Structures are given as C-alpha cells and as structure tokens.
Amino acid sequence: MRTALNAPPNTLDEDEQSFVAKIREHGWFRTGVLGDDDGPGFSFTTGLFVNTGQPELLIFSMKDRIAHDVFWDLYRDAKDGRSLPVGRRTEAVFGNAPAYAFRIAKEHYRDLLGWSRWFYGGDVFPCLQIVWPDREGRFPWEEDFADEFAGLQKDMTESGWKNELAD
C-alpha cells in the first residue's frame, strides 16, 4: 500500500514531514480536532491501518490525554493481532466501562479525517468510531441515556448505530 511514508521527503512541507516522522517513529499519530458550533471535538488516528492492518480509530468528546492513552492501548492490541469487535459490546477499550466500535461511513471521511485522507491518498482505509456510554453504562441509542451527554457523540455510521448492532 502506498502512503505518505513512500513520499520523497523533499516533496513534503515541514508539517507533512513532521507528521510522517511521528508515524515512522511510533507507528501511528493522534490528531485532535476542537469542537465548535457544528459539533463536538474528536480525536482520530493515522497509521494503524498501514502498520497493523487494523482500522484507524476515531472517538468524540474525549480529553486529548485520555484519547491518546486509549489509542496507545488499542495500537498495542492491534500489533499483537487483537482487533475490536464491530457492532458488539466490548470491554477491550476502557478499563472501567464498556464500549462499541462501528464502521464510519465513507461519506463522513472528508469532514472528519483530513490528515488520514492525505496520508493514504484518499478514502482507501477503514476507520472505526469508538462509542462510549454514560455513567450508568447506557449508550446513546438506548433508553434513558443521560441527557447531559446527548450530542457529545455523532453517529457516523451508514445506517445508524442501532441498525449496526451485531449483538
């Protein structure tokens, strides 16, 4: 697979060279995007797919430090051959709460995954959205999900979280 890792350094600007260097050094990179009037902030990875064969990851409304730690753990798992179950409840993401992973629809890549799209030269990579529960362990599609968390995660699936559950 051709990626920005294959680009001659003299064809990349300073930011691109730095980005590629971090992926070479660590195997992946986390990009953080601030929230605004259009939606909540989020973090996503670049490099997991090319270096582990596992999908890139995205998570909404998580503090940068926590998102980074979660992504590191999942990168290590991917390097060891462990993958996230798609559409199934899992305890493999957080130490103290369940999570779900869902495929992000390609139609959302342009708005969400700029650096990853640049790195891979388009939308030729898979990406999963990690969805977290409220304090009571309920997810956004479940009855009585806490109002205080409503709107902190956007559904980026093809047909809606509830329709993509494999449980």
Rank of each mutant, 00 (worst) to 15 (best):
Y109T: 01
A92D: 08
V93K: 03
D77T: 10
K79H: 15
E91D: 08
P85W: 02
L152Y: 11
Q153P: 08
G81E: 01
D147K: 15
G81R: 07
I66N: 12
R135E: 09
I104R: 05
Y109Q: 14
P85M: 00
F71R: 05
E91S: 13
P126D: 14
R135H: 09
P98A: 08
G95E: 11
C127P: 03
V131T: 00
V70F: 02
P126H: 07
E148C: 11
K106A: 03
R65L: 12
G121F: 08
E142Y: 12
R138C: 04
A150L: 14
E143H: 15
F119S: 03
I66W: 02
R89V: 03
G95A: 13
R135G: 15
I104T: 08
A101R: 03
W132R: 06
P133A: 05
A92I: 00
G151N: 04
E91K: 11
W132C: 10
I130H: 01
M62S: 10
H68I: 01
E107M: 09
R65F: 13
P98I: 00
L152F: 09
A67P: 04
L84G: 08
P85H: 05
A97W: 07
D69E: 14
E107G: 05
D77L: 15
R138S: 08
L112T: 01
E136M: 12
D80K: 15
Q153I: 01
Q153S: 12
S116I: 07
G87F: 10
S61G: 08
V131S: 00
K63I: 06
E136W: 02
M62N: 05
R88S: 10
Y75H: 13
G121W: 08
S116E: 00
A105P: 04
D77N: 08
A105M: 07
A78N: 08
P85S: 11
K63D: 07
W115T: 10
A150F: 07
R117K: 14
W118C: 00
R110M: 08
G151A: 14
F125L: 02
